[in-house]
């Protein structure tokens, strides 16, 4: 290949990537920069900050550190991610993957049933569960717990955070199951044979072979699901709007409420920058874990 040809190919490659790069620049990188800038001003949609936003330095961040509602939103986000992505989806997904490993009749059907919730749009999931968790004597979950002699509950009022964890766990078991299934399938079966010869029981085989060899898959899964769980919006917005009294206000909902309901754009942006930094932190771990090979 001649040098001229190579130069032309290089130019063409740049031209092919340009539209994508431009879109990402305009709709992601630039807005992220604007968020950082806005977070240093007192910009608001109403009041003095609306006419003439002023540079306030780290004022918004000082306010944020002293703001109980910010810390409570961060805590809600943490428990939501831990409860639904790390514990609920992962444990039930791994369990399903192990239970469905061996062939039997109805295996494909069970597989499809466990995967179904993954396909449901967030808003639809919210309505389905609004019915499940409805308060009063006729609510579906109330009917179920009545068999065990439990009084009817107002689920979304009394246990709001637990309930959104239950709902979000429901949405993600299938995804975890698929990835864990592929992780399990990649473990060579002669390892199990050898362990069996040595008299290892099933729990020992799980502890000493399955778990250690599954670690890379689990790690990547946790990073991906953490990031996507932080980004959840429609599900909680349609189900509780972050209420009651901020009990389900994960950081995305908090940003939205601060910006579009309280019209505090500067303050909302400071929260957004914190969310951005947390996600980027997870993202950097992800980059390292992927060992990007170019």
């Amino acid at each position: 290949m001649s040098a001229r040809f190579q130069r032309r190919e290089a130019l063409r490659n740049r031209a092919l990537l340009l539209p994508s790069a431009l879109l990402l620049l305009v709709f992601v990188i630039y807005p992220a920069g604007v968020a950082v800038w806005t977070s240093l001003t007192n910009e608001a949609m109403t009041g003095p900050g609306a006419l003439n936003p002023r540079f306030v330095g780290l004022g918004n961040y000082r306010r944020l550190l002293a703001d109980g509602s910010f810390w409570s939103s961060l805590a809600v986000t943490f428990w939501f991610v831990l409860g639904s992505a790390v514990i609920g989806q992962f444990v039930l997904g791994l369990l399903s993957a192990i239970l469905l490993q061996r062939p039997f009749t109805g295996r494909m059907l069970l597989n499809a049933i466990i995967l179904m919730p993954n396909a449901v749009p967030e808003v639809v999931a919210a309505f389905i569960w609004a019915s499940m968790l409805a308060a009063g004597d006729y609510g579906t979950l109330n009917n179920v717990v009545a068999w065990f002699g439990v009084e009817p509950q107002r689920w979304l009022t009394t246990f709001p955070l637990t309930m959104i964890i239950v709902v979000n766990t429901w949405r993600g078991i299938g995804f975890a199951m698929i990835l864990m299934t592929s992780g399990l399938a990649a473990i060579p079966s002669d390892l199990y044979e050898a362990a069996r010869m040595d008299g290892a029981n099933r729990w020992q085989r799980f502890r000493r072979i399955t778990l250690p060899l599954l670690v890379p898959t689990v790690f990547l899964y946790l990073l991906v699901s953490t990031v996507s769980t932080i980004a959840i919006f429609g599900l909680i917005f349609a189900l509780t709007r972050g209420g009651p009294a901020g009990a389900t206000e994960i950081i995305g909902i908090y940003i939205y409420n601060q910006s579009f309901n309280s019209y505090q754009l500067g303050y909302g942006s400071a929260v957004a920058v914190v969310a951005l930094l947390i996600s980027l932190g997870v993202g950097l771990l992800y980059v390292r874990a992927l060992k990007v090979d170019v």
Partner: peptide
């Protein structure tokens, strides 16, 4: 390539206000 992985993890809610301005 590194940047597109990092961009992928940004939650859209964190960008919604500046996006509205853009």
């Amino acid at each position: 390539l590194y940047s597109i992985i990092l961009i992928r993890v940004i939650p859209p809610t964190a960008l919604i206000v500046p996006l509205y301005k853009v």
